[in-house]
Write a protein that binds this DNA or RNA. Sequence first.
RNA 1: CGGGGUAUAGCGCAGUCUGGUUAGCGCACCUGGUUUGGGACCAGGGGGUCGCAGGUUCGAAUCCUGCUACCCCGACCA
Length: 491
Amino acid sequence: MAKDFPTRAENYSQWYNDLVIKADLAENSAVRGCMVIKPYGFAIWEKIQSILDKKFKETGHSNVYFPIFIPKSFFSKEASHVEGFAKECAVVTHYRLKKSPDGKSIVVDEDAKLEEELIIRPTSETIIWDTYRNWIKSYRDLPILYNQWANVVRWEMRTRLFLRTAEFLWQEGHTAHATKEEAIQEAETMLGVYSDFAENWMAIPVLRGVKSPGERFAGALETYAIEALMQDGKALQAGTSHFLGQNFAKAFDVKFLNRENQLDYVWATSWGVSTRLMGALVMAHSDDNGLVLPPKLAPIQVAIVPVFKNPEQLNAISKVVTPIKKALESRGVSVKYDDRDTHKPGWKFSEYEFKGVPLRITIGPRDIENNTVEIARRDTLEKEILQITDIEEKVVHLLDQIQKNMFDRALSFREQNTFTVNTWDEFVDTIENKGGFISAHWDGTAETEEKIKEATKATIRVIPLNNVKENGRCVYSGKPSEQRVIFARAY
RNA sequence: CGGGGUAUAGCGCAGUCUGGUUAGCGCACCUGGUUUGGGACCAGGGGGUCGCAGGUUCGAAUCCUGCUACCCCGACCA
């Protein structure tokens, strides 16, 4: 199914596009910029969802659901927010269709024009804060810790499967707090949830930090983010958590009586991750042979391939495989025993390799005789013959090792592709010829940030949390700087 | 949204310049047989309103106009 598949070195973006489609994760739909997520891709997304959902609930959050439509007037209430999203909104203007005069097609019924247009949500702050006004009267009503799993629409000009689509799936948490400190704590807690998920489940090391003012979310006072490094040396923002201050409370008039019996505006956060994580997963780990999935997110963790010449042999193999499969499943390992006789073993090897299945077990007549199996790791492509005794122990151990190895490999890639530079020449040379994360001094001004972006396409990805203070000179302007920040070209 | 490219069977392509039998090829698919420890082989077979809509013409995959989608490069973004 996946012959003639380009290598990463030949054409990285072609490699990514082909991989997503040929590994059956998603495909382009009939609708411009929108994707169809296929069963294998959606199975991974469902794992991401269920793990994150559990973490949200463990940190005290509940799920809610708000409408997909937002009245247009809501958008103008928070000035910087509307400015940030206005250019990419889909708008509903009518509510009825009718037959065209010639009866051959369907046209919009102009008599069915909406009094007020509805925006298809690009994010839900406005409708949520309009609603929170009714729910919050007293400090006793706080905090409000809600999340919703939803789809949103942003009318992007250039789209790419998972990385940037006009419609995407995500979760958006929206919380309200009595104090500034508590809201900041919440934003930081959720950044921690995201980075734990990225590193310990997706096996992708991330930098934690805050965005420069220029890169902040529209309407936020502080945007926290995790940034990951892809194999082509470009950065990918994998999750954001925003401290919104009292901006939305003021815009939507959400006040409460505090313990001192004084009326005050509530403090807010919002945080989200999207189906973009799927893109990160592919680009961080996969290789020229196809997907490489971390065991903790792989829909199939172990594929068992029997090698047989006739039904009798298959029967003998199945007798050995069935208890192994059961034992693995009882330990929470998802196993696919592929006993189809419609495909040859070699075909199946390639298939599971391309789909990124972490472990493959092969059992044939030789193994039945010797009481062994052949086990192949997707991450290293190594094969070994193992005694069948305690095979489930060995498999569970191997899956742990693969998970760890994938993280370690991604971490050492990031370390090898993180450069500390001190001069502008070095900066340009690194961006042009090496890529990766660049740690450099910045004078803290938006002007310099913009100039650097114009000159090199590199942006400030994060100002790391707990950054070491270090006096230096801005790599671009030469003005004094008190800390290094992380630059990169980004998706 | 600006510049460039592409659109012919599920996928990858030829044919288009120079309009003319029944639109080909490889892979995939179906049937039969031989095979099965890294993408099998032989034989036979099915599948196409040539991206969509108009136009020119006796006749259009081919010429003209408009539209749409995708890919690459810019500006915008999770």
